[in-house]
Simulated assay, not measured.
Amino acid sequence: MTDPATDLRFDGRVAVITGAGRGLGRAYALLLGSKGAKVVVNDPGGALRGDGDDAGPADEVVREIKAAGGEAVACTESVATPEGGQAIVQTALDHYGRIDVLVHNAGNVRAGSLRELSYEDFEAVVDVHLRGAFHVVRPAFPLMCEAGYGRVVLTSSIGGLYGNHGVANYGVAKAGVIGLSNVAALEGAEHGVKCNVIVPAAVTRMAEGIDISAYPPMGPELVAPVVGWLAHESCSITGEMLVSIAGRVARAFVAESPGVYRPSWTIAEVGEQLAGIRDTSDPWVLPPVPSAHVDHIRNSFAMATKGTDNAG
């Protein structure tokens, strides 16, 4: 095992971390700060629903980083607006003159069944998780491209990958983040900018009301090193998703079955060929970078060009 004293460092790097006043974001900020990064600790300090504001959590994390010998500054702007996102990135420029790392972790929760969810609660969650990601990526990304270096880590969830009851707003937002990350990875590739997604799970205040008595250890500190690696200059992947839950780290990915080709279809034939259509025994795994979009089209066209009916 690697000696923590010789772990990877961030000396000279400037990291902006949203939602860094509590929970996962706090763990990320403390870790990167302890490894030499200059950290912008962004958190308006609101309640779980996103209501209210309190400078205390962000200020406290800054104090912790400084007490450990690091450098940090607090920013209480909200990611929910374009102006807030710009101000968060500008804080890094004003205090440290650059931005090397952007971790978008800010989140809120407004639960409600799909039959009852209000438009207000839908928009409020999308504003923070999804639009919030764009609001900080948009001003940071050109700066990173111009500098020829950048690491962006966006936050999805198993709720975005697989859905869950009572959180359509959250599921939509977390799924959308994956699309944003793929585009940032593609457009950043030639400029030394890498973008990946963390799919984390940890016991934080978002677990309030859940029976966690049977849970294994799954504190934020188990997720933080994964984000640290994605944020580090040695990160060797882009356009990917890493899962971190209870000490397990894994890759999540989108795949397709090869499917069935026919020169023409009837409605009935789709049902008749469903087993072959859904056969995942030899899947296509198409990494977004460098060319999944093109590969998907090319491979599909190749089946049509061959003109061979492979229906069973």
Score class of each variant (00 low, 15 high):
5 A>Y: 07
5 A>R: 11
10 F>Q: 11
10 F>R: 02
12 G>D: 03
14 V>W: 07
16 V>P: 13
18 T>K: 08
18 T>H: 12
27 A>V: 14
30 L>V: 12
39 V>L: 10
42 N>D: 10
44 P>K: 01
44 P>S: 05
45 G>S: 05
47 A>K: 14
48 L>V: 12
49 R>D: 15
52 G>S: 00
70 G>V: 02
74 A>S: 13
76 T>M: 00
77 E>D: 15
82 P>R: 08
85 G>S: 10
87 A>F: 08
94 D>W: 03
98 R>N: 01
105 N>V: 09
107 G>Q: 12
108 N>G: 08
108 N>P: 08
114 L>F: 15
122 F>V: 04
124 A>I: 07
124 A>Y: 08
125 V>Y: 09
131 R>N: 13
131 R>W: 13
136 V>C: 02
143 L>H: 07
146 E>W: 01
152 V>P: 05
155 T>R: 04
156 S>Y: 03
157 S>H: 10
160 G>S: 11
165 H>V: 13
166 G>N: 14
167 V>C: 11
167 V>D: 08
169 N>D: 13
175 A>N: 05
179 G>S: 10
179 G>M: 00
179 G>N: 08
190 E>P: 03
192 G>T: 00
201 A>C: 08
202 A>Y: 12
206 M>K: 04
214 A>I: 03
217 P>E: 09
226 V>W: 04
227 V>E: 05
250 A>R: 09
255 A>Y: 15
256 E>K: 05
257 S>E: 01
259 G>M: 04
261 Y>C: 01
280 T>Q: 14
288 P>V: 03
292 A>L: 01
298 R>C: 04
307 G>R: 00
